[in-house]
């Protein structure tokens, strides 16, 4: 058979695509339950970490229990462009701490994170990331403690214009209470994070927390 005849070429490519497409799909579907479980575990772990919840162990059930026993949830419609945003609130103490997911475009891909604020929304308690695809060794350092710890207790300067309420990297005043150091060498990631974090904070401030219907979290959702 002539290897260069169009029919052979098309047939060869079709067979190859079918073979490898099936292979990847098989692996994908065979592991999809595991993948979803891992995703949920990571999600719960980040939320527990951001609220600093007490956890009994390391299993997925421990994280899920910590969340159901400490947090209640509400949907804030229109708080994310046109979509809705989940708002978590602590009910096991009277602090009224709030936690909200936020997200925006990083250098390579979307960065998804979670931020906890005090009840007055004046100070950040913690900031954590669910996932990102920033360059290893450069932008990916946003998830290192030495960067994240800077946000603990950071004061948001609500009187400043929207893009400068939280500063990452150089500001007008190096000692400003709302400033953290940027990642050395990863200017693009740092700037993107600063921009979308400030945009998201503006949306978070616009949420009328008192009007929300908070509910206990159903175990099966976690």
């Amino acid at each position: 058979m002539n290897k260069n005849s169009p029919i052979y070429v098309l047939g060869f490519m079709a067979a190859l695509c079918a073979f490898f497409g099936t292979g990847v799909s098989l692996v994908h579907y065979a592991t999809s339950d595991l993948l979803a479980a891992n995703e949920r575990l990571n999600h719960n772990r980040v939320i527990c970490d951001a609220f600093d919840l007490p956890i009994d162990g390391q299993t997925p059930a421990d994280y899920a229990r910590a969340i159901t026993e400490s947090l209640e949830i509400a949907e804030a419609t229109g708080a994310n462009g046109n979509g809705s945003r989940r708002v978590y609130r602590r009910y096991d103490d009277d602090s009224g701490q709030l936690g909200l997911p936020f997200s925006g475009m990083g250098f390579w891909d979307r960065i998804n994170g979670f931020i906890t604020l005090d009840a007055e929304r004046e100070n950040i308690i913690r900031l954590r990331f669910f996932d990102h695809k920033e360059t290893p060794g450069l932008g990916a350092r946003i998830e290192e403690p030495r960067f994240l710890d800077q946000f603990d207790g950071l004061t948001i300067d609500w009187d400043a214009p929207v893009p400068r309420r939280v500063l990452i990297g150089t500001g007008h005043n190096a000692d400003a209470p709302n400033r953290v150091d940027a990642i050395t060498g990863a200017t693009q990631t740092s700037n993107s994070l600063r921009d979308f974090l400030n945009t998201e904070l503006e949306r978070i401030r616009a949420i009328d927390i008192d009007a929300l219907q908070f509910q206990r979290i159903d175990d099966t959702e976690l």
Binding site: N4, V9, F12, M13, L16, V24
Partner: peptide
């Protein structure tokens, strides 16, 4: 078995599939 014309497509396809399977 690979026709010369499409050998590059075939190679990228093989590489990408392996990497994705291992990734998943």
């Amino acid at each position: 078995y690979t026709p010369r014309r499409v050998r590059m497509i075939a190679q990228v396809l093989i590489i990408a599939s392996y990497v994705m399977m291992v990734d998943i």
